[in-house]
C-alpha cells in the first residue's frame, strides 16, 4: 500500500501513514495541537496550514472548498478532518 509521511511542525513529529489517512486521525494520535469540532467538515475548527507538500493531499471536496471560502481561509489551508494524505511528504501545523 502506498505510504506517506506527515510532519506536525508544532510538535516536531513525523509519522508514516497509509494512503487515504485523514490528517485529523494522525494528529489526534500523536497529540498535535490541531483542534476539531464536528469532524464532518462543517465547523471549520480544524483549519490547518499546509507548509509544504500540499500536492500530496487529495483535492478538497465541494463541501470543504465552501467551508474554506466561508472562513476566508488563506491559500495553503485545509480542513484536517477532510484532507486525506496520498503519498510523499507533507508538513502541516495548526492554523
Amino acid at each position: 500500500m502506498p505510504k506517506a509521511k506527515v510532519t506536525f511542525e508544532d510538535i516536531g513529529v513525523t509519522i508514516t501513514v497509509p494512503a487515504g489517512t485523514r490528517l485529523i486521525e494522525v494528529s489526534e494520535r500523536v497529540g498535535a495541537a490541531i483542534t476539531y469540532g464536528c469532524r464532518e467538515g462543517e465547523c471549520g475548527t480544524c483549519l490547518t496550514q499546509v507548509i509544504s507538500g500540499g500536492e500530496h493531499l487529495a483535492e478538497p471536496s465541494v463541501l470543504e472548498d465552501q467551508v474554506l471560502k466561508d472562513m476566508f481561509a488563506p491559500r495553503g489551508h485545509r480542513l484536517a478532518c477532510q484532507a486525506q494524505v496520498l503519498d510523499g511528504d507533507v508538513v502541516v501545523k495548526p492554523a
Binding site: T14, I15, T16, T21, V26, V30, G31
Partner: peptide
C-alpha cells in the same frame, strides 16, 4: 514511539 504506533495499528 508515535511513529511506530501508527504503523502497527493500521
Amino acid at each position: 514511539p508515535p511513529g511506530e504506533l501508527f504503523a502497527e495499528a493500521t
